[in-house]
Amino acid sequence: LSQDQINEYKECFSLYDKQQRGKIKATDLMVAMRCLGASPTPGEVQRHLQTHGIDGNGELDFSTFLTIMHMQIKQE
């Protein structure tokens, strides 16, 4: 990932990090990914979360979000 991409991801991540705690809700993951041009299915989002041990009510930090985005873009 280039620095530009990382900055773009950070900007989008921040939109969903409403309390500015450095985390977004798992329920916002799909929308955040789509905001960056990825098109994950609900099943793919579920798999990404399970891979990282996050349940549907959990939260993920930016580095986890980056990893998930990277995996998603590689497979699209």
Rank of each mutant, 00 (worst) to 15 (best):
L1D: 12
L1C: 13
L1V: 10
L1S: 12
L1E: 06
S2R: 08
S2H: 11
S2D: 15
S2W: 05
S2Q: 07
S2G: 13
Q3C: 05
Q3Y: 07
Q3H: 06
Q3I: 12
Q3L: 07
Q3T: 10
Q3S: 06
Q3R: 10
Q3M: 09
D4S: 09
D4G: 04
D4N: 08
Q5A: 12
Q5V: 02
Q5D: 09
Q5K: 09
Q5N: 11
Q5P: 04
Q5L: 12
Q5Y: 07
Q5G: 04
I6Y: 10
I6H: 06
I6R: 11
N7M: 12
N7S: 14
N7G: 06
N7F: 08
N7L: 10
N7W: 05
N7E: 09
N7D: 11
E8G: 08
E8K: 14
E8S: 15
Y9N: 02
Y9E: 03
Y9L: 12
Y9A: 14
Y9M: 15
Y9P: 03
K10E: 12
E11I: 12
E11S: 12
E11T: 14
E11C: 06
E11W: 05
E11Q: 14
C12F: 12
C12H: 08
C12L: 13
F13S: 00
F13K: 00
F13L: 02
S14R: 08
S14A: 05
S14P: 00
S14M: 10
S14E: 09
S14I: 05
L15A: 10
L15E: 13
L15P: 01
L15S: 13
L15F: 14
L15C: 12
L15K: 15
L15W: 05
L15V: 09
D17A: 06
D17M: 02
D17H: 01
D17E: 06
D17S: 05
K18I: 09
K18H: 06
Q19A: 08
Q19P: 08
Q19Y: 06
Q19C: 07
Q19T: 08
Q19L: 07
Q20R: 11
Q20M: 06
Q20P: 01
Q20F: 06
R21P: 02
R21F: 02
R21K: 13
R21V: 10
R21G: 08
R21Q: 09
G22V: 01
G22F: 01
G22Q: 05
K23L: 11
K23I: 08
K23M: 11
K23S: 10
K23V: 12
K23E: 06
I24H: 00
I24V: 07
I24F: 03
K25C: 11
K25V: 09
K25A: 11
K25N: 06
K25L: 13
A26L: 03
A26Q: 04
A26M: 03
T27A: 11
T27C: 09
T27L: 11
T27W: 07
T27V: 10
T27D: 13
D28W: 03
D28E: 10
D28F: 07
L29K: 00
L29E: 00
L29W: 00
L29I: 10
L29T: 04
L29R: 00
L29M: 08
L29Q: 00
L29V: 09
M30A: 13
M30S: 14
M30D: 13
M30Q: 12
V31S: 09
V31Y: 14
V31A: 11
A32M: 08
A32D: 00
M33T: 02
M33K: 00
M33A: 06
M33Y: 01
M33G: 01
M33N: 00
M33H: 00
R34W: 03
R34D: 10
R34G: 14
R34A: 12
R34K: 13
R34T: 12
C35Q: 12
C35Y: 12
C35I: 10
C35G: 14
L36V: 12
L36H: 04
L36P: 02
L36M: 08
L36F: 05
L36K: 07
L36N: 08
L36R: 04
G37S: 09
G37D: 09
G37W: 02
G37N: 11
G37E: 06
G37F: 03
G37V: 01
G37K: 10
G37Q: 06
G37R: 09
G37Y: 04
A38V: 14
A38M: 14
S39N: 15
S39W: 08
S39E: 13
S39T: 05
S39D: 09
S39I: 08
T41R: 06
T41G: 15
P42R: 15
G43D: 09
G43Q: 07
G43A: 08
G43T: 08
G43W: 10
G43Y: 14
G43F: 05
G43H: 15
G43V: 10
E44M: 03
V45A: 07
V45L: 03
V45Q: 05
V45I: 04
R47V: 15
H48N: 07
H48Y: 15
L49R: 03
L49W: 05
L49N: 01
L49A: 03
L49Y: 07
G53D: 06
I54M: 08
I54T: 04
G56S: 11
G56N: 04
N57Y: 03
N57S: 06
N57H: 15
G58R: 07
G58A: 13
G58M: 04
G58C: 10
E59M: 02
E59K: 05
E59N: 15
E59L: 14
E59A: 06
E59H: 02
E59Y: 03
E59C: 10
L60H: 00
L60N: 00
L60T: 03
L60Q: 00
D61M: 02
D61K: 15
D61V: 06
D61R: 06
D61H: 05
F62D: 01
F62W: 12
F62G: 01
F62Y: 08
F62Q: 06
F65Q: 01
L66E: 13
L66R: 08
L66A: 15
I68S: 02
I68W: 00
I68L: 07
I68E: 00
I68K: 00
M69E: 01
M69W: 03
H70N: 03
M71R: 03
E76D: 07
E76R: 13
E76P: 14
E76W: 08
E76Y: 10
E76N: 08
E76T: 11
